[in-house]
Amino acid sequence: MSDAGAGGRADRPSTLFSASTLIGPATLLVAIGILAPMLFLARYSLNLYDPRLLMIEAFSPANYIAFFSDPFYLGVFFTTLRVSFVCTAVCIVLGFPLAYLLARTGSRMKNLMIIGIVIPLFVGNAVRAAGWMTFFGSRGLLSVTLMDLGLRDGPTEIMFTETAVIIGIIAVNLPYMVLTLQSVLEGIDRNLEEAAFSLGAPPWTMFRRVLWPLALPGIAAGTILCFILAMNAYATPVLLGGPQFRMMAPMVYNQFQLNNWPLAAALAFILMATTLGLTVVAGLMTRQSFRG
């Protein structure tokens, strides 16, 4: 490679902003802020817990065995998976039409619509959950309205149920799904839809044969994002689910509060491994079907 005549290497902007310079700070932050604590947690999860002595140095899988052999923990685990799957599925079904509309509209209101979708993200999860509480309670807006309309005789209790948590998480996650899908759908040439129509494909067939496969990378990204957020939801299950309803993230925190660091660390790792595993599987599946 001849750089002669182009001046010294040092004053070339490409050197100044070389790859390592650009990713350096973020890498450092990740290394110190995430990797190090995770290594500690991984080590902790292999320790043992004693109510009196708290943490005992050990190298034992006891916490993991306890988790997978205890119906209570497994129940929480499957509740978390179920809620996450339902929330993600509903987000796809609700989000796709909305994202499609946003991607295809020529309306001047488009920016306003996008702002409308982003604005809920400005409200913290806890604040939003508090809002839902006033709506879901037995004396809340929904219940009272249903009674006033004569649709229900007694109060409707949604508060402190799985339904309330699912609705709450969907409300949090939907904007992420819509924005992810919208950006992908916008990249799909509208002429492709028309080409399919003119070749004889009715709308549903067009969707199945053209739009869906082309949007698959975006659907995968949105699904993964949505699923991770649901699996790790904390404020929504605590506030809308109440003390009887348990999901993984609040349980991790509970164990920390009880000073059972080894079990909390093990729970955290199980949650993380499951999320990661399912994400990888989803990624592989979409890649394969996209090639096929």
Binding site: D189, N191, L192, E194, A195, A196, F197, S198, L199, G200, A201, P202, R209, V210, P213, L214, F290
Partner: peptide
């Protein structure tokens, strides 16, 4: 459109990017 017997060639061709040439024609 899908019930008309018209064949349309687009300015930007609008070939289905995820299908091979043969599958595009077979559509």
């Amino acid at each position: 459109p899908w019930k008309r017997s018209t064949g349309l060639v687009f300015q930007n061709y609008a070939l289905f990017p995820h299908l091979t040439v043969a599958r595009n024609l077979a559509f």
